[in-house]
């Protein structure tokens, strides 16, 4: 018996040794490192919107896209989970589907939990309403936001109604941005229809500090500033909650 047990143990050890190095090798192949640090559960969740905002039409797979059908349930999950106290939205997008972008923006704007956005690299076109949909928005000094009129690809019927439809869609975007940021409607339209700024288009490419100057974004800053802001919002929200209990 003793012998058998000993043999078993040896077998197990052998197996462990075999599985050990191979998983280690796998890790090295996967990430080029063996261990990642572990930290306690985070009360702030992160939603990254990268590449193109993909809507009703599936883009070819070589495009890097953010699919709104993936993000909407995540936003609901964030709203429902009591452990999550705040959300940070990371933006580096070239724009995309207007209705998908507006859907995301409205979802973020209607979350009860504190939200802060950071525009990194670029937050173009439909990225603008997403960036301003949060309670507070940041932009890094090097990031840019292109503001330009809405346009259509694919089959277009050459009737005045098409133009009206497009105009209404644009109006929705403008209204959302004006409502959720400090920019004046006139100023935003001026930027949108400006000539001579973009090489082959009308519109304006707004850079970090300018976006703050125009009132589009609240502040220039990165991760550190965003974390300070969201923690401030979280303590504020907690304070309000306690007051309600007392009443």
């Amino acid at each position: 018996m003793m012998n058998k047990d000993a043999e078993k143990k040896e077998d197990q050890e052998e197996q462990e040794e075999q599985s050990g190095p191979s998983s280690l090798v796998q890790k090295i192949q996967a990430l080029g490192q063996t261990n990642v640090p572990q930290a306690p559960d985070s009360n702030v969740h992160v939603l990254s919107i990268i590449g193109q905002v993909e809507g009703h039409i599936q883009l070819p797979p070589q495009n890097k896209t953010t699919k709104y059908e993936h993000l909407l349930p995540q936003l609901i999950a964030i709203e429902q989970n009591p452990k999550i106290e705040g959300v940070i939205i990371l933006l580096n997008t070239v724009g995309g589907d207007v209705e998908a972008g507006l859907a995301l923006s409205e979802m973020i704007a209607s979350l009860s939990k504190p939200t802060v956005s950071i525009v990194l690299g670029g937050g173009h076109s439909i990225g603008v309403p997403i960036a301003v949909s949060t309670d507070y928005s940041f932009i890094v000094p090097t990031a840019t936001m292109t503001i330009h009129p809405v346009r259509l690809t694919g089959l277009v019927i050459g009737v005045p109604q098409t133009f009206e439809y497009l105009d209404k869609m644009q109006e929705r975007v403008i209204n959302f941005v004006v409502k959720h940021s400090n920019i004046q409607e006139e100023k935003f339209k001026d930027l949108m229809f400006a000539k001579g700024n973009l090489t082959r288009d009308i519109g304006t490419n707004v850079i970090g500090t300018d976006a703050v100057e125009y009132g589009l974004i609240d502040e220039v800053g990165g991760v550190k500033e965003a974390m300070v802001k969201i923690n401030e919002f979280i303590t504020q929200a907690k304070g309000n909650g306690e007051q309600e209990v007392i009443q």
Partner: peptide
């Protein structure tokens, strides 16, 4: 995932 800790979890390393 929206949970930043998931990205530090060994289980979800890209390539695994």
């Amino acid at each position: 995932s929206t949970d930043p800790q998931d990205y530090l979890n060994d289980k979800y390393i890209p390539g695994s």
